[in-house]
Write a protein that binds this DNA or RNA. Structure first.
Lengths: 367, 367
DNA sequence: CCACTTTCGCAACGCTGTTGCCAAAGTGCA
DNA sequence: TGCACTTTGGCAACAGCGTTGCGAAAGTGG
């Protein structure tokens, strides 16, 4: 609802309410939602909802989809989102592979691609491969593709980067990428298609948030590194320099063992060290201590775990982290914060990247 | 701009824009601000600003205050907030004392009171003392007080509590307060005056944010305990259960020395322990490690320090914390995060408490 | 078959910020 | 001193927002 400087006009009002309705339609899925329910959920009057949905139907974004059972009078007409009204591409770049998905407006995957990748091969080579994958998905299977409205491309990759400008920083282990303007380079290559770049953990967190995880939560990703995506109040928290979520280099052991980052006693170093030694339970406990610090600082609702290392022993990590959080809850007297494995697994990141493009349509405050 | 359920109508639009203009007027202070500058800063058209300011002048909230030098045409008319249009009371309850201030609409202190207090004396006794202090400030010096519009009373005190419901939790060392509905009890006693209750650290942080600290920052308060107030994007971050800011019980030393909270290796225990042993520099370093963890997680712009223990050796703490953050910045390649002593000192908390009541008028999203 | 309930759109309305226009109030040059 | 020019800012008309009043549509239940 906020413009560049905060002032709101009637146009902003309209797009705010429209996005709100669209998001409820999306959440309702194929089941649909009635006009009156939309009115109740938004706080708008039924008549306002009728006007808004009429516009959406005219624009082809919404459609009627049957009717509910009557409750004594005229039965409610059910509306649903028309997923085919728009498409987005999500790309997940890892150290050794590329995954790309083409999704409909509601986030369902229409097509997938997967290819090996060498991030160290240099910007041009990687860029060409990414552009190729995107265009292949885009072209799809012929005629149907023409009707697809290209909303944009979301790219998720590890390492610190500037989300707003779409510029990479020092991707760990690949110094050549430092300062590379990935967003603009890819946008130019694809022909002025909107491109959004973000950290893999943020994309995963966004995907979870859009996928139904309400409230505030932290997504902790433990793979070859350890990072976090923070969702506060429905939106991804990135911070002023979009560098938030540096969970792995949180110090939990003063003057502890050295970490690759140059500091000592980071959660990442302790956690991965324990995993290497085969002490998975100790790794889970250390991860739990870091998670408990986060819970105390931000008062989040939920902790979700993901990443290859976690997926190798999901029960151990969930149990270990939950134990630390439960102990914390007993001390504070609050209800314990639940820990779960993030649904979607490794595929979640590419889908979350697509949501980087889709989310603004539904008024999720982030880009 | 968001209503109960997110839907926005014209009334919400108006109050949003009005609050925005009021906040700019407040920020401009006695110097004032012209209509055209308001238009530039808000993004609204000059005509819209004229309409809004005309309403504000009619309501007595704004007034013309001279004119600027001409830049070649008709000189700009300067507008300013009328601070006397409303007043608020801020109360700071400490373990051993009570401070209360009466502030004008712009936050300037009109009157002060200070009294010794025994938080352990029981709810009724403390409540009576607080109500007495508030009423004494309110009555003020006679006739002038009648004109003061009572906006409400903000109360800041240590320990975990439920900000939304105004109910205290286990105030450390005073188990008798657990579950006491301070907000409703005080509101009833004062005769249906709006009361807002919050943690002392949040009040201090809000006071700093309103006082001109832009962007995102953390206020770290080191007194008899260690807590934090987090300001993210202009508003205080409290979390779903308004329990955020538990900075002191962040673990920075796995299996470290036991803390009063029942855990081991908390920053608070390590930091206060070092202070007791006279090792102030070590205390500052430990505090710095906790601050660096926070900076990495949330990507904040600034760290502000306050509290009696810090004020006993401000340079040592600022230098020690800054050293840790500088080392972190060198590793990440980002610009270093500056550390400062929070302006206002101990008096800041009562004034911040008054802003708990004033902030909503100026559209700061928190209550 | 009729009374009743519920849904939902059309029309009129009040209010928002916006646009077009003009008076007011300065500066700067002749 | 007078005139052209620039800038400010209010009045009036306007388009568009959500709201209200009302009636048609489409069911249920006696």
């Amino acid at each position: 609802m906020r413009g560049a400087a905060g002032g709101a006009n009637l146009l902003a009002l309209r797009s705010h309410n429209t996005a709100l309705v669209l998001d409820l339609l999306r959440t309702a899925g194929a089941e649909g939602i009635s006009r009156l329910e939309l009115a109740e959920r938004t706080g708008l009057t039924p008549q306002a909802v009728s006007k808004i949905t009429a516009r959406l139907r005219q624009d082809g974004l919404a459609a009627e989809a049957g009717r509910r059972a009557s409750t004594g009078g005229k039965p409610r007409t059910v509306l649903r989102l028309v997923p085919e009204a728009g498409h987005a591409v999500g790309v997940h770049l890892d150290r050794d592979g590329l995954r790309a998905v083409l999704t409909a407006l509601d986030g369902t995957v229409v097509a997938r691609r997967r290819a090996p990748l060498d991030l160290g091969a240099g910007a041009e080579a990687v860029l060409a491969q990414v552009a190729g994958a995107v265009e292949a998905l885009w072209a799809g299977d012929g005629t149907a593709a023409r009707a697809r409205r290209p909303l944009g491309v979301g790219v998720a990759l590890p390492g610190p980067l500037d989300h707003e400008r779409g510029v990479l920083h020092r991707v760990t282990g690949f110094p050549g990428w430092d300062g590379f303007p990935l967003r603009d380079a890819l946008a130019e290559r694809l022909g002025a298609v909107p491109v959004v770049v973000d950290k893999d953990t943020n994309a995963a967190a966004l995907g979870l948030a859009v996928g139904g995880e309400g409230g505030s939560f932290a997504y902790l990703h433990l793979g070859t590194g350890l990072g976090a995506g923070l969702v506060i109040g429905g939106g991804v928290h990135r911070g002023p320099r979009t560098a938030a979520g540096e969970f792995g280099h949180q110090v939990v052991q003063l003057d502890g063992p050295p970490c690759g980052c140059g500091d000592r006693g980071c959660v990442e170093a302790l956690c991965l060290g324990a995993v290497e030694r085969g002490e998975t339970e100790e790794a889970a406990r250390v991860l739990g201590v870091g998670a408990a610090n986060l819970v105390g600082l931000l008062d989040i609702d939920r902790v979700l775990l993901g990443g290859r290392t976690v997926e190798a022993a999901p029960e151990v990590f969930v149990r270990g982290v939950q134990a630390v959080l439960d102990a914390r809850a007993r001390r504070t007297g609050d209800a314990p914060v639940p820990v779960r494995i993030a649904s979607g697994g490794g595929r979640g990141i590419a889908e979350g990247a697509a949501h980087l493009v889709l989310a603004p349509v539904f008024g999720r405050r982030d880009g």
